[in-house]
Nucleic acid binder design. Sequence first.
DNA 1: CGATGTCATGACAGTTGTGTGACAAACCCG
DNA 2: CGGGTTTGTCACACAACTGTCATGACATCG
Lengths: 219, 219
Amino acid sequence: MIEDDDRIRMSLGLALEDEGYTVRAVATAEEGMASQRQEPADTVLVDLMLPGIDGFECIRQLRRDGDVPIIVVSARDDTHDVVAALEAGADDYVIKPVAVKELSARLRALRRRARPVAVAPQIMVFNGLEIRPQAGEVLLHGNQLSLTRTEFRLLCELAEHAGLVLSRQQLLERVWEYDYGDERLVDVHIGRLRQKIEDNSATPQRLLTVRGLGYKLQR
Amino acid sequence: MIEDDDRIRMSLGLALEDEGYTVRAVATAEEGMASQRQEPADTVLVDLMLPGIDGFECIRQLRRDGDVPIIVVSARDDTHDVVAALEAGADDYVIKPVAVKELSARLRALRRRARPVAVAPQIMVFNGLEIRPQAGEVLLHGNQLSLTRTEFRLLCELAEHAGLVLSRQQLLERVWEYDYGDERLVDVHIGRLRQKIEDNSATPQRLLTVRGLGYKLQR
DNA sequence: CGATGTCATGACAGTTGTGTGACAAACCCG
DNA sequence: CGGGTTTGTCACACAACTGTCATGACATCG
């Protein structure tokens, strides 16, 4: 939910949570778009009158980034606004003050229609190494490898940030979901992963150690 | 358009034609449903207060027959009606008198979302395994198999996402419609399904286990 | 050129994940 | 009702995986 009025944001958020929704609420379009990029929501509720980037522009940008369902929740009841918002890419438009039951019903109706998502990076390729997160497959020079779950998740994590160094701590958090723990554990699994994805040359070609910092997957 | 008031039907019909739509207008739910069965429209506009079968029932029946987008155009502005109509299967609800520009924009917004007509995969074939979801038939090397309902649904679910890993949780939700439950249940049914669709070789050829992630049907 | 910190790797024991057969409850269909 | 079928639960066996540790190699620096 992108809504700059604190009172409305709070009360509407709580009301929707009562209806069984999980709500993430922010006050500006900038925050909303960042949040959506970070961790996409199923549906976006957006006000039109926002400080900074306004609702219309926000809708256009959200629409450009993906096809998340968007409902405008606005106090403006002018037909021009409705038309403009829908043209910008919104899916529905309700006028404040809004009955939560109605909003909830419209959310359900919209989600019935929404495409069964289609997020997910399809395939990533790095110098002979092909990763298909969806299919749970990794191919090296076209041959399918059999990775363990941990190896697979570790590789995906590195691949998603290919070229960037990830610290052992970051990897522990993201792959193992440990907040603390022995960082050497990462080393062991990197080693095992290397045996499978490197071509037996003396020095690693793909999965590089950055001494003192962590590991990275070569682009 | 299903609308019993002659004046509104005429004027709204003409106005929409001005907007570029082709309109077929009838006065009763019975006519509307017959017309829709005869020659399906892209979108249905329906009033709630109709003689004979009322709007709610009309929506339910239209929805049962297919997933044509439905917009309610009603003079009733009570939240209960809105919720009831959306729950019955409507996609949007606008209140009379309606601005044609707004209705037109909502029509466009809805049609953006509408599924690109019946996907309905007729027949799927995977390495000697032929699945006909419509007919409820599965053939292995041309011989019809007798699957139980659960096995069939499980297979269809996997087939619809062939090549992609589905977690036990996803399968539980989609095949059993359990939100939680013992994931081992999936294993058992996968085992039973395998006995029927695999060619008795030691390792599965079609229905693969992806350790730690779930199962997938080999493309 | 040692001293020190960092990293790679093989071995191993405990844990986890998966396949399967047995069984009872639920269901279906005359 | 009553038979067969289907379904869900359970327990066990086995293989695969994980995390820990010890050892040694290697880089860096004073």
